[in-house]
Amino acid sequence: MGIKQLDEKTLGWVKAIIFLLALIPFIRLVIGGITDGLGANPIEKITRSTGYWTLTLIMVTLAITPLRKLTGWHWLTRTRRMLGLFAFFYVCLHFLTYLVLDQFFDWGSIIKDIIKRPYITVGFPSFLLLIPLAVTSNNAMIKKLGGKRWRWLHRLVYAVAVGGVVHYWWLVKKDLTNPVIFAAVLAILLGFRLVYWWRGKQVASSR
């Protein structure tokens, strides 16, 4: 067996551990909220934290395929749905924080934001694009759509990831450290795919 192939039971444990790890940022926010531990500006803290973990989890889901190809650990793919759904969970919290705590359903002001604030102009559709991905993240939908169409649909995540990083880049006041790190990670993850795709084409045409 070894680490390349996991039996169902071990995979179950791995998934349970990933589930708990992915929940930690949320638990920390809840505890911080209860114990007055979120600092002077808790709403900003919640917004920042949920946004950060959305982006991080999107990067992790995008790292699955390259890692699988590099290591041959095919079971990695079976952890991806959960990670993707966690990214969606955090982006929902992120959006709800904005909608309720930041704007309190002030739709006029929200629409103005979407039109006038470039970081929201790019962030809001990125959030919307994640909805069809979350809705189709189950076996029944894969069956219904067919693997090929499902895969095409889920390539939207590339656009979402780029949108998310640009959103972060455009909102920071001056210190670009974090957005630059996300952009570099994303460039590597997407670059890996480009190289693979290009090499695949070379092989195909040389046949």
Partner: peptide, 14 residues
């Protein structure tokens, strides 16, 4: 890049 119409007073919810 952002609106200055409103502000959050530290300690306030809205």
């Amino acid at each position: 890049r952002w609106s200055q119409a409103k502000e959050r007073r530290i300690g306030d919810f809205f």
